[in-house]
Amino acid sequence: MKNIIVILSALGCIGLLTDARLPDEGPFPAVRPGQSNTAAPTPQLPPIPEPKPERSDADTPPAKQGPPDFSNQPEKQGPKLPSQQTLEEQHLTIAAESDAEHSECERELQVLGVVFKDIARIDDGNGCGIDKPIKVSEALPGIKLKPEAVFRCPVALALARWMKESVIPAASVAAKDQGHIVAVNQASSYICRLRNGAEIGKVSEHARGNAVDIASFSFEKGKDVAVQPRREDPTLIGAFQRTISAAGCLYFTTVLDPESDAAHETHFHLDVLERNGGYRYCH
């Protein structure tokens, strides 16, 4: 009996299985903890580049060019000479001189016996000139200044004092066989030019009437004593030149001698340029 019941139960289960329908899709696997239940992303293809915008004229690189054409440009100007330079470029003006100081200076020249005369104010443009110029024909009594020189009174006064107190005493020892000095030969006094006669650079103190260049000394007899390089000269004349060059700085604020540079190999440059603190340049 029990066997019959088991057989019938088995046949009922088979019937149920026969009528059951399978699902259209199989079961999805369970989502693991921490895992999203979204589908995996579809692989992306590389983006298609957008078409490049058209270039404007400003973006277009310039074409290669040949050598520059200067045919239509103005001709390049050479260095400016003093007559072409403006006051602003050189910061040069004709300094006004005190009437009282000028009168006192001339009085001292007269005491020393300097032969001179006043001349009209000089204005050569571009700041070159002298407010109260004088023309000197004798540096001291009996000592000609050749040729006559034009500068400011302080230059004449410094020259006279240097000659009287240093040059004449030194010459009486170094060249006593040649007698007294009878002339001072100058190479330059007032002139409107740049330093060292250059075409560019600063205006010379000669253009302000502040300087004189001395080339040689003439004696009663014998040859002139020329200013020339004498640093290694072992003679009395060599000692004479070195002595008066050094002494020049007692009277002038600038002394340049033949040992200074090539531009001064043939003369002394002496000037009365005023510097801050009374500084003097002697070389």
Rank of each mutant, 00 (worst) to 15 (best):
L8A: 14
A10N: 07
I14A: 13
G15D: 02
L17Y: 06
A20V: 02
P23C: 00
D24E: 11
P29K: 14
R32Y: 08
P33Q: 08
G34F: 10
Q35M: 13
T38N: 13
A40F: 12
P41F: 09
P41K: 12
T42D: 06
P43C: 08
L45Y: 06
P47C: 02
E50R: 12
K52I: 01
E54I: 06
A58F: 04
P62G: 05
K64H: 03
Q65D: 00
P67I: 00
P68M: 01
D69N: 11
N72M: 05
P79Q: 06
P79G: 09
P79R: 07
P82A: 04
S83T: 13
Q85F: 00
L87M: 12
E89Q: 14
E89N: 05
Q90R: 12
T93Q: 11
A96H: 13
E97F: 05
S98K: 05
E101A: 15
Q110A: 13
Q110G: 14
L112T: 06
D118V: 06
D118H: 15
D118F: 04
I119S: 09
R121P: 03
G127D: 07
I130P: 00
K132D: 02
V136F: 04
E138N: 15
P141W: 01
I143E: 04
K144E: 13
K144H: 11
K146D: 14
E148S: 15
R152Y: 02
R152N: 05
